[in-house]
Every structure is written in C-alpha cells, then in structure tokens.
C-alpha cells in the first residue's frame, strides 16, 4: 500500500511537466454575515449578528492533469488575542479542504487529502452559503444531533482525510458521476494518527437525465465512530433535484443507523428528510418553502423534530446574495417546544 502510494507520487511528479505552468483558477473565497432572532430562549430573543464565515480558496492547475485545491475557514471569531473580559471560545480557524488531484481521464480522477465528505446534495458545499438560497441547511440531514453518549454530532463525518476516486461518464445527454472514498473515519485524531483500525468509507452516485431532466443521487457512508465508543454508524441517503424553467424541487431522505454500543445496549435508527420547493421571481430573486422532519429514534413515539421554513433570497449584485427566512420549529421531545427562528444573511463571493 505504502509502495503504491509512493509510486503514484513519483508518477504524478514526473508527469506534471512544469510547475511554472501553474495557473490560478476560480474565485478567491466568500464571506457570510448573519443576523438572527428567535423565541426559543432568552439568548435568541436578544438577537445577534454573526460573521459566520470568511473562507479563502486556492485552486491551482499545476499541469493539465494535476491540480491543487485548498480552503481555509475563519468561522465566527478567530482572534488569537482577546480584550479583557472577552472569551476565546466560539470561533476557530480551520483547514476546511486541502487536496491534490490527479486526472487520468474524466472517468478516473484521484484525490488525496482532506475533503468534505460527499454525502447528499449539500455536504460538499456545506458552508458555501453563496451557493444556496437559505441561511441554514436542512437540519435533519446536515445538522448535528445528540448521540446516545450525549455528544452533538452528525451521522456521517463532515470532513474526511483519505483518498477519493471519482469520475464522470457522459453517454449522450445522460450524465453519471461517481465518488468512492476511504478515510481515517472519526476519532480523536482523524487528521493525524487514526486511533481505530476501521476506516470510514462511502460512495456518492449521481445520475442526470438530460440537461433539462431531473438529477437523482444516492449516498452511503459507514465508519466505526471513534467518538461514539467505536460503534458502527451507517448512513444511507437518496436525493432528488429537478429544475424546470422558474421552478425547482429538491428532496432528500436519509436513514442513519448506529449498531449496539458495546456493553451499553444502546442502538439507534434515525430517519430524516425534507422537501423544498422554490420559484425564481424576476431575474434575481428566489422564493422558497421547505418542510424538514427528523425522527431521532424510530423506536420512540412522538419524538419528531419538524421545521417549516419560508424564505427568499435576492441577488442584488452579481457577487452578493441577501437572504431572509422564517423557521417554525416544532420539537416533540419530553418537553415539547414550539418556537420561531428568524434569520437574515448576506453572502458575498470574491
């Protein structure tokens, strides 16, 4: 395995004809600023501004076949020094993605490094708010939920460090795309020294039925979750996207299962799904409605988390998108809660 890796590195270095030929492509990054107000608690009632993301990109074509891609994220606050009375908590700087890509053909592309796990429609653009119309993504699939151990985490790794093989096949107007990956999986040191023997692995398959047809996708992710007593966690998702003239329909469903946590008897199967309908109004505005539902444990009755969202986004200049949305949450836990969340944001690409 190690020999194969070094062999590949030598081959890639040899075939990148000249580093002088490198060419910067793509935008430099994006920024998202948010304002929120809600009725869920006293903190939300006060209202808040949040410089959520400031992300910088580097996308360099080293040769016609080789490419380097990187993204650094400044989330919330990221100062290393604080004023008296301030807290350092609540923000961070993170290497969001960094990979080396080598293209053998459009059918076989190899990526090595840290990438956003290809799961569902949005995980690969999880934080890229300029690329979607709402301030927050559907929380059932893309949000964090409480694990049986009490940790807040997603049902799949948001980031993966490892190798990915991907490719695209275009027979006529049909388009088929696949992504297969193996990674360190989740644990205490997922980017340095993996502390569990089982790797995270998964696939994403996408079929596009003509340029005016629907796009159907399937995602799979499985690992022994090192942050959850090494219990195997498996996620399976299906998604559908159809855009016709001014209308867009998106829907996703996922099933997450956690095998029995050793010596605890804890196991869980959760279901999640949403449906979103959007209409483009005029040339720059989108109006949308979404219903999102999450069942954290299929064995438990009356524990659904539902969210009705009504929102709009307006592209007031080519690089900037303003968004406004209202969420009506209905959380049916032991102490049922119904609350409203109002969010507004500005997303700018530069």
């Amino acid at each position: 395995m190690i020999r194969a890796f070094w062999g590949f590195c030598l081959f890639a270095a040899w075939s990148c004809s000249s580093l002088l030929a490198q060419e910067f492509i793509g935008p430099h990054g994006f920024l998202t600023l948010e304002a929120g107000w809600g009725t869920q608690d006293s903190v939300a009632r006060r209202g808040t501004f949040d410089l959520h993301h400031f992300n910088l990109f580097g996308d360099v074509l080293l040769s016609p076949r080789a490419r380097l891609f990187g993204e650094i994220e400044f989330e919330h606050r990221s100062e290393m020094e604080v004023e008296a009375g301030e807290s350092l908590a609540g923000g961070f700087v993170r290497l969001e993605r960094a990979w080396f890509e080598y293209r053998f053909s459009s059918l076989f592309v190899l990526r090595l490094g840290k990438f956003l796990t290809p799961y569902g429609i949005y995980n690969e653009i999880h934080d890229v708010a300029p690329a979607y119309d709402t301030t927050i993504l559907p929380q059932s699939i893309y949000g964090k939920h409480q694990s049986p151990q009490g940790r807040m985490q997603r049902f799949y790794a948001k980031f993966s460090l490892g190798a990915q093989l991907l490719g695209t096949w275009h027979p006529g107007s049909f388009k088929f795309k696949y992504q297969l990956f193996v990674s360190n999986g989740r644990g205490q040191y997922p980017y340095e020294q993996d502390d569990n023997a089982n790797k995270g692995m998964g696939t994403r398959l996408i079929g596009e039925f003509g340029h005016k047809g629907p796009v159907i996708g399937a995602s799979f992710y499985s690992d022994r979750n090192g942050l959850n007593a090494n219990a195997r966690q498996t996620s399976l998702g299906l998604d559908f996207r159809y855009e016709f003239r001014r209308y867009r329909l998106i829907s996703e469903v996922s099933r997450f299962s956690l095998e029995e946590v050793p010596y605890s008897g804890i196991m869980r199967t959760a279901n999640a799904g949403y449906i979103e309908f959007a209409v483009h109004v005029g040339r720059q505005q989108t109006v949308l409605v979404r219903y999102d539902v999450f069942d954290p444990d299929t064995r438990m009755p009356h524990d659904l988390e539902k969210d009705w969202m009504f929102g709009t986004s307006y592209q007031f200049m080519e690089q900037a998108l303003a968004k406004f949305e209202i969420h009506f949450w209905d959380v049916q836990t032991a102490t049922p809660r119904r609350y409203i969340q109002v969010l507004s944001s500005l997303a700018v690409v530069f």
């Binding site: 005016k212 003239r245 040339r283």
Partner: peptide
C-alpha cells in the same frame, strides 16, 4: 437549457465550490 442566467450562475457556484475541476 430553458433556465435563467440566475439559475445557471447558481449551478456554477455549486460546481466551483464543491471542488469540481472547472474553469469559471
């Protein structure tokens, strides 16, 4: 495509930021 420039621009943003090898 029967789609507006606005829709196509959004398609490109998704493509670029998901890390596809494209020239914007």
């Amino acid at each position: 495509y029967g789609l507006s420039r606005y829709s196509i621009a959004k398609y490109w943003l998704r493509l670029i930021f998901s890390g596809e090898r494209v020239t914007p």
